[in-house]
């Protein structure tokens, strides 16, 4: 008993036949080999699985693959431009040492992009509040905040 799903992932058409209980994150990771989107918890709080669905940040562990039927999905892999040119947010994370083990990073970057889309010139407090859905255990957030500030300043 499978359902067919057709969606656009990182600008390319993708389709798969899935069990309805398959989560979107597993479609991305296991069937489309886009393993940059991570699973860090099972209660939808760590944000490591954050992707953009039709331009809005969502948690790919909190929705079924079938719910993304017809949608436009961007993952961390799709944020990188042609010739491996990183997105300004990715660049800012590197410049500011906003990552250590790298596991929360893709979700953090996707979330930070949403934050700036909604609020292009946030204060430090707004950045911190805006990232409450993403847990990082390594950086203490100090350099993540700096990275978002840098990306905002350059935009």
């Amino acid at each position: 008993m499978t359902v067919s799903v057709t969606l656009t992932v990182n600008g390319k058409a993708a389709s798969a036949s899935v069990d309805p209980r398959m989560l979107l994150v597993h479609l991305l990771r296991d069937q489309l080999q886009l393993t940059g989107t991570h699973v860090g918890c099972d209660t939808a709080q760590c944000g490591a699985c954050t992707i953009h669905l039709n331009g809005r940040a969502v948690k790919a562990c909190s929705m079924l693959a079938v719910q993304a039927n017809g949608a436009n999905v961007t993952t961390i892999e799709g944020l990188t431009g042609k010739g491996d040119k990183m997105h300004p947010m990715q660049e800012a994370f590197r410049d500011c040492h906003g990552l250590q083990c790298g596991f929360c990073t893709p979700g953090m970057v996707m979330s930070a992009c949403q934050l700036l889309a909604d609020n292009p010139k946030p204060t430090e407090a707004e950045i911190r509040a805006g990232l409450e859905g993403n847990i990082c255990r390594c950086t203490g957030y100090h350099n993540i905040v700096k990275a978002v500030q840098q990306a905002a300043a350059q935009a």
Partner: peptide
């Protein structure tokens, strides 16, 4: 700047 960051930031870890 860290040499490992490119792969982590682009989902290639």
């Amino acid at each position: 700047l860290r040499r490992e960051d490119q792969r982590f930031l682009t989902g290639n870890g």
